[in-house]
Amino acid sequence: MSEISAEQVAHLAMLARIELSPEEIASLTVELGSIVDNVAKVSAVATPDLPATSHPIPLVNVFRPDVVGETLTQEQALSGAPEAHDGRFRVSAILGEEQ
């Protein structure tokens, strides 16, 4: 059986910035466990000498000339923003209590 614990799921959720409820953590722990059990078999065939493939079609040296193109206007840039102020995106305080 899988070694995935609820604490681990809670930690992963923190890394992924998803505020999971205790119920969600519980059900995800079970689901993740069974998925991981099923996918873990990849490590059985992945021998050390086998090269990894990160891109299905191998291309190299794909570059862009250093030439300025079109930019968005400030209005376009901010058009989807939940909150904007003074031409900038507004977010709530980054830290909580004074540190």
Binding site: V42, V45, A46, A52
Partner: peptide, 10 residues
């Protein structure tokens, strides 16, 4: 996991 999966891809 990820590393092995990329090898399986090969």
């Amino acid at each position: 996991y990820y590393g092995s999966a990329q090898k399986v891809r090969t």
